[in-house]
Simulated assay, not measured.
Amino acid sequence: MIGISIGVILSGRMMQKHPYKKLAVRGWLLTSVALFSISLIFTDIGVIFIYFFAFLTGFGIGSVMPTFMLPDQNAVSENYQATVGGMIQLSKNIDGAAGILVLFPSYKGLFLKTFDKVLHSNILPNCINRR
C-alpha cells in the first residue's frame, strides 16, 4: 500500500513534465521486473528483499493509475470530470470484485495442488520451518 500511494503521488506530479505514455510504460516495466524478481526468490533470502520487491510492484502499479485517470477526465468538459472520475473508480471496483469471484477458485485449486507437491518434497528452502 505504501508503494502504491507513493507511486500515485509521484506519477501525478510527474505528469506535468512528462508524457503519459512514458510514465505508463515505465510503471508497467517496473512492475514486470519486480514481479519477475519475486518469482525468482526461492532460496534463503531476507524478508527485507521480499518487502522491497513488493514495494517496487506497488510503486509501479501506483505510477500507472493516474496515467489512465487523467486523460479520461480531460476528455470531457469540466462539468462532467467528477462524474467520469467516479465512473472510472466504480468500474475498477466492479472489475476487481468480478475478477476475484471468477479467478479465485481456479487459483485455489492450482495453488493447493502445487503446494501439496512442494510440501511433500524435499525442495523447501531452509528459511521455512518444516513440521
Rank of each mutant, 00 (worst) to 15 (best):
M1R: 11
M1W: 08
M1G: 10
M1N: 10
I2M: 08
G3P: 12
G3F: 05
G3C: 06
I4P: 12
S5A: 11
S5C: 04
I6E: 00
I9V: 10
G12R: 02
G12H: 01
M14T: 04
M14V: 07
M15P: 00
Q16D: 13
K17R: 10
P19T: 07
Y20F: 07
K22F: 12
A24R: 06
V25I: 10
V25W: 05
R26T: 14
G27N: 07
G27E: 07
S32T: 15
V33F: 12
A34Q: 10
L35C: 13
F36T: 13
S37M: 13
S39L: 14
S39Y: 11
L40D: 13
L40C: 10
L40V: 06
I41S: 08
I41E: 03
F42C: 12
T43G: 15
T43V: 15
D44A: 15
I45M: 11
I45V: 07
I45L: 09
V47P: 09
I48W: 14
I48H: 14
F49V: 13
F49E: 13
Y51F: 13
Y51P: 08
F53V: 09
F53P: 03
A54F: 07
A54T: 05
F55A: 07
T57P: 01
T57N: 02
T57A: 04
G58C: 00
G58N: 05
G62W: 00
G62T: 05
S63E: 03
S63T: 14
S63K: 06
S63C: 13
V64M: 03
V64D: 03
M65A: 15
M65P: 07
T67A: 04
M69N: 09
L70G: 04
L70Q: 06
P71W: 02
D72I: 08
D72F: 07
Q73M: 12
A75R: 04
V76I: 13
V76A: 10
S77F: 08
N79E: 15
Y80P: 03
Q81S: 05
V84N: 03
V84G: 02
G85F: 09
G85A: 15
G86N: 15
G86H: 15
I88K: 11
I88E: 05
L90G: 02
L90P: 03
L90H: 13
S91E: 02
S91L: 01
K92A: 15
I94Q: 10
D95N: 11
G96P: 00
A97R: 01
A97D: 06
A97N: 03
I100L: 08
V102H: 01
V102I: 08
V102M: 05
L103N: 01
P105K: 02
P105L: 00
P105V: 01
P105N: 00
P105S: 01
S106W: 12
S106G: 06
G109Q: 10
L110C: 08
L112R: 09
K113P: 10
K113A: 12
K113C: 11
T114N: 14
F115N: 02
D116N: 04
K117A: 11
V118Q: 02
S121A: 05
N122S: 12
I123S: 11
L124G: 02
P125R: 06
C127R: 15
I128R: 04
R130N: 05
R131A: 11
R131I: 05
